[in-house]
Design a binder for these strands. Structure first.
Length: 157
DNA sequence: GCCAACGTTGGC
DNA sequence: GCCAACGTTGGC
């Protein structure tokens, strides 16, 4: 099982939106970057866990945990000529973009970007690297475990 | 709003 | 295949 971090702009789709979604399951549609697509398409498996990260907002950071509950399939939004995710080069016979479905495991306290940066144990995290823009990144098992320990601790922050 | 970093596009 | 121009991301 692998671990991931998946970014979403809360103004587009937040952890609370997921909490209120039917069955707390949504397709992770709209990814239009090949590297991120390939992670979903080629490497994500049923049961993988991911941090749900809020980006481009007043308080960026980890806001929850989700599980991958359906492996990659063609992203429906690429076929909608009226939608903002339409891709004229994609067809049903040869789809370009794929998405998984994610299921809410739990909301967590917000672990802010600043807090993540404060831990030397996380210095190698992709999401903390300068210039990182990738919306889906793998998370090292040790980094995953460390963040879990911060979520479980009763430290006041 | 600014700007650094990065990905994509398209002319050659 | 190169690379300049352009668009997007995302923190600040």
């Amino acid at each position: 099982m692998r671990h991931w971090l998946m970014k979403s702009e809360p103004s587009e789709f937040s952890i609370d939106d997921l909490a209120h979604a039917k069955h707390q399951i949504v397709p992770w549609f709209g990814v239009r970057n090949y590297q991120a697509r390939n992670f979903m398409w080629r490497q994500m498996s049923l049961g993988d866990l991911a941090f749900f990260y809020h980006s481009s907002c007043p308080e960026p950071g980890i806001a929850g945990i989700v599980s991958i509950c359906r492996p990659a399939y063609a992203d429906e939004t690429q076929f909608d000529p009226d939608g903002k995710y339409y891709d004229p080069k994609a067809s049903r016979e040869a789809p370009r973009w794929f998405n998984v479905d994610v299921h809410l495991v739990k909301k967590t306290r917000l672990i802010s970007l600043a807090e993540l940066r404060s831990y030397p144990q996380l210095a190698g995290m992709r999401v903390l690297q300068r210039g990182n823009r990738l919306s889906i990144t793998p998370v090292d098992p040790r980094e995953w475990a460390f963040i879990q320990s911060r979520l479980n601790s009763h430290d006041v922050r």
